[in-house]
Design a protein around this nucleic acid. Structure first.
Lengths: 247, 247
DNA sequence: TTGGCCAGCTGGTCAGACCAATTCTAGAAA
DNA sequence: TTTCTAGAATTGGTCTGACCAGCTGGCCAA
């Protein structure tokens, strides 16, 4: 027959040849492999799209459709006039998790409950595993909170970093990523609530700081149970306070 | 000549024309919203690409680049000659979470530890919230396990479903998804280990079934603490057994 | 009614063109 | 020589029109 691109059949093995269904997915796989394998490191610049076309032997459409998902997921970053770059490691896992977890936004309760579970466990493990550098980082966020009791925006940022640093101190990267994402979502929720009653934010901040200090003390003492209890108390009251504001 | 094609606008049309910085991202956002908001339900067929072009008032390139990430993430599914469809809910959140969580595969310990946390909590909540249908579903998986003690493949599947059903019984969708993904990853690991020592799988299966029954009994009794303890015991011994095989 | 065939649709791919932003470069100005 | 700046070249983003391969549905003959 007049096969245009007849695959070179290997006579010894009849079931060998599996042609990839779509070109762009094949490119996508290859790129993902290069990134996961470390050939392309964060910050690296990819060859230009037109260059990749020639190297892969495909059209620009296919190259772009392979790049687009990676860009959407935050693994790559396209800059007009400059090129396409591998994103920094920090941002690489943020978006895919957001996509995965935030499919339906109606379940605020699930979010709060899951966060509670993740953070109490994180406090527990952090107490057992935090190194001096972790403790220093957490202490720094406490300092930051203390200095910005009357600036909600700043305070909130240090607050969030406090929880991030605890997550990091668990030495469990997966847990860290999960908390990172969920916390990010919670954060927007907190922001909404606080703007509803700006006059009470400072008193809330003060009690919040106090609770954070208790958590830190427990972690410093390497007392896992106490850290978990303190975190539990903190999240429970904070959640309740914020929910009260809603009314 | 070079004017962008006329935005064929029509209020009460769920596909509204575009205004944002990058066109394809704007379309992406809009589509995501339609899916998350339930306007587009699983199984629905989207308008054809050429149709969307007219409705959005953009070129097919932009539409396709918006569709592509959603397809890669498993949220949409393209079928040549037929159309583009919203994927079934089950598969919708699997891939994005995998992309996010499995960036570096070296941290098997993190995986095990995180799974332990998620599943013990799931057991706790399931005991408090499982409805009759949940209990029936869990019981069915136990039955399946009992009937396939000597068929590792089948047994493993019922085993996995047991844990899925518990996750579902928590009524926390987010937790369910997380367990779903992590369990899927653990599962491949378990499979690898079991093939290393096929002669012991049946005795392992027997003790495993016994532990599953204890977990189920605790959930049936609505005893959260007991359920957590039973799950804790199960995962600890199962993990230890599997790690022993490795040697 | 049944079976097969064909026209028309759909997603996947390619090529060429234009835009806006960035980067590079060579000549002018100091 | 060094510095500055205006083009020129390059790059990602978008549009258009074309073609392919697989699916769908309806028409027609048996």
């Amino acid at each position: 027959m007049n096969e245009p691109n007849a695959p070179a059949e290997n006579p010894s093995d009849p079931f060998q040849p599996i042609e990839r269904a779509t070109v762009s997915d094949a490119i996508l796989d290859q790129l993902r492999g290069l990134i996961a394998g470390g050939t392309l490191k964060p910050g690296d610049r990819l060859p230009s799209e037109r260059d990749l076309c020639k190297r892969f032997g495909v059209g620009r459409t296919s190259v772009r459709e392979a790049l687009k998902p990676l860009i959407t997921l935050g693994i790559l970053e396209g800059r007009i006039g400059s090129g396409t770059y591998v994103a920094t490691e920090a941002g690489q896992f943020q978006k895919p998790l957001q996509w995965g977890l935030l499919g339906d936004l109606q379940s605020q309760d699930d979010l709060v409950e899951t966060r509670h579970m993740l953070e109490t466990n994180a406090a527990h493990w952090a107490a057992q595993r935090a190194g001096p550098d972790n403790l220093a980082a957490i202490a720094a966020t406490l300092q930051g909170m203390a200095e910005h009791l009357d600036e909600p925006g700043q305070f909130q940022e240090f607050d969030a970093n406090f929880h991030f640093e605890i997550a990091r101190a668990t030495q469990n990267k997966m847990l860290y990523r999960l908390i990172n994402v969920i916390r990010g979502q919670i954060q927007t929720w907190i922001g909404e609530r606080l703007t509803l009653s700006p006059e009470r934010t400072e008193s809330l901040a003060r009690t919040s700081l106090e609770q954070h200090r208790e958590i830190f003390a427990a972690i410093q003492d390497q007392d896992g149970a106490a850290a978990r209890a303190a975190m539990d108390h903190h999240i429970q009251t904070a959640t309740r306070d914020l929910q009260k504001i809603a009314k």
